[in-house]
Nucleic acid binder design. Structure first.
Length: 571
DNA sequence: GCCGTTTTCGGCCCGACTGTTTTCAGTCG
């Protein structure tokens, strides 16, 4: 059983407990445990097989550990089944609707017999809710709006989409005179792969006037709430934006608080509690005395910690590292010297080799690898051996005529079902750069998929595994693989792992990068550009690398063209 | 249910806002 499934069960137990009279802390404990399992680098099933005591993990004690054990060995868990029997069906689904918590969900079920989203929608439309005590017309309208948003977005949007909204909003805020400072916090600042909402911190001497100006932003579709401290709106279809006002002495503490993540904040607050201090969005306090708050660095420093880059704030060991001065020196966009994965008109790209080379040169790169598809990807007009030979000749010919950028003659060769490569090995071994990728049979079982990748890695002719997890965010899950085996093979055979910077791929995902780094694997950050402007996806790949704790030395395409050539020399 | 540098018991983050009611419960982040 996968960790995601276990985490879902723990979350469901937590949700069900909310509908009973269980202690709030017990409910939270289940959700905390779910979070731990979800972000665990190894599978619980593998840990158990290795006789690891799961109750050693944070937020998992004897009770939860035994439930996980039961889940893995029996496929289900008695506590879950018992709770499902006790709680009317459908009520946990209702709780997922914004505006509805456990109390209202239960109330709607008991008073109106509502058991599903469809029931809820109909009841709102028929004005049934207003008849229930403590509910009214406005609640009805708000729920209908929530349902529409839920349907449109399934909750979160891609980092790139949210970033585009933030950029537009930023241009507007920039021109409001009364706003002396604003910062975007939240998961966007942490550069998470998907974003639930935007948190904007605002500093202004005249908050009422600033609020009026903010509410004039043309992108606003609906004002969710408005108070002296906070304004919440919905923009561009589905993105909620929360504006919060803070004064300069509070601003750093507020930035820290609203950047999160929640687990990071909780872990941080534990360190605060040990000193008998208090940390909230207004500052770090001893009693009523403010110890820090103007900047984040000041707050961290007062707690004996180095400033932690937002991308690391996930409670994955960054606090200990900050305490011991061992935080990684994270890779930056400016460290990247070239792109090692792009396509041209020869297959499914839009530009010629020359177009792509020029676009890369304009972006200040020293080198670009041309890596078109192989023949198995028929829909992309993939190259067979004959066409590839000609294509490579063209790349090399152009390379000789170009100044300011070096071209690597490469290919993105398909890794077929059993791990064989889609092109002749002798031909592949004459290329400068070979990316091996999976584009088919994504549903192989874990052992078969692991063997498939390991076989390809051992082929001796690929330099890199392209988009290793095969996922498309929101559409296709990560393939099932024993990653430790794949990483070990990559390390042994000197095969790099790609971080694919396509905004809907971001693959390999950050937590796996951290694990691959620990296994000693080298990385490549690539855009997989299919047109010139796609080369601008590089920052999203760098975001993933940073969230995966990678330093420049872990990333091959931070090195110079000369060093790259040396590193790629065939044995 | 988890956790522990005053603890194996007694804590566990808490402030802002809405809607409905009339002093506050529920929800959210």
């Amino acid at each position: 059983m996968e960790n995601a499934q276990i985490a879902d069960v723990l979350d469901e137990i937590g949700d069900l407990l909310e509908l009973t009279d269980a202690s709030l802390f017990r409910i939270r404990a289940y959700h905390d445990a779910a979070q731990t399992v979800r972000s665990l680098p190894q599978r619980c099933e593998d840990l158990l097989a290795d006789d690891v005591d799961l109750s050693e993990l944070p937020h998992i004690g004897k009770s939860t550990a035994s439930k996980i054990d039961e889940l893995i060995h029996k496929g289900t868990c008695g506590r879950l089944l018992e709770l499902r029997r006790r709680v009317p069906s459908g009520v946990t689904t209702l709780m997922k609707v914004p505006q509805l918590g456990p109390r209202r969900a239960l109330l709607l079920h008991d008073a109106l017999g509502i058991e599903s989203i469809a029931d809820l929608k109909k009841a709102c439309e028929d004005h049934q809710l207003a008849r229930v005590r403590s509910l009214g017309n406005k609640t009805e309208q708000n729920i209908l709006r929530s349902l529409a948003t839920l349907k449109a977005t399934s909750g979160r949007m891609l980092l790139k989409a949210a970033g585009d909204h933030a950029e537009a909003l930023g241009r507007y805020l920039h021109h409001i005179d009364g706003i002396s400072r604003w910062e975007i916090a939240g998961s966007l600042r942490r550069r998470r792969e998907t974003i639930g909402d935007l948190d904007v911190l605002v500093q202004s001497a005249d908050r009422a006037a600033a609020t009026d100006r903010i509410l004039n932003y043309p992108g606003i579709e609906h004002v969710l709430s408005r108070g002296p401290e906070r304004v919440s709106v919905r923009v561009g279809g589905a993105l909620q934006v929360d504006f919060r006002f803070f004064d300069p002495p509070e601003f750093g503490a507020a930035l820290l608080y609203f950047t999160g993540s929640k687990p990071h904040n909780i872990a941080l607050r534990k360190r605060v509690q040990r000193r008998k201090w208090k940390l909230n969005e207004y500052g770090l306090f001893s009693g009523t005395r403010r110890l820090a708050g103007t900047t984040e660095a000041e707050v961290y420093a007062r707690l004996g910690l180095a400033w932690i880059p937002p991308e690391l704030r996930e409670d994955r060991g960054e606090l200990d590292a900050a305490a011991h001065g061992t935080l990684p020196k994270l890779v930056k966009l400016t460290d990247i010297r070239g792109d090692l994965h792009c396509h041209t008109k020869a297959t499914d790209g839009a530009g010629t080799i020359a177009d792509m080379a020029e676009a890369a040169r304009l972006r200040g790169y020293d080198y670009l690898a041309i890596t078109d598809h192989s023949k198995a990807v028929t829909i992309a007009n993939g190259l067979n051996e004959t066409r590839l030979k000609k294509h490579v000749e063209q790349i090399r010919k152009l390379d000789r005529s170009l100044d300011g950028i070096r071209l690597l003659a490469g290919v993105e060769v398909d890794i077929l079902k059993e791990g064989q490569l889609d092109l002749d090995k002798d031909l592949l071994s004459t290329l400068d750069w070979v990316v091996g990728s999976v584009h088919s049979h994504f549903n192989l079982d874990r052992d078969a998929m692991t063997n498939r990748l390991v076989t390809a890695v051992r082929s001796g002719v690929i330099h890199c595994l392209g988009h290793p997890g095969g996922r498309i965010i929101g559409r296709r899950d990560l393939i099932q693989v024993d990653w430790d085996k794949v990483f070990a093979a990559c390390k042994e055979h000197g095969v790099r792992i790609e971080i694919n910077a396509q905004p809907d791929r971001l693959d390999l995902p950050d937590t796996y990068c951290q694990r691959a780094k620990a296994a000693g694997v080298e990385f490549v950050i690539s855009t997989d550009a299919h047109k010139e402007s796609d080369l601008d996806y590089m920052p999203f790949g760098v975001d993933v690398a940073r969230r995966g704790w990678l330093e420049p030395g872990n990333v091959l395409n931070t090195c110079t063209a000369a060093k790259l050539r040396k590193a790629l020399k065939r044995r």
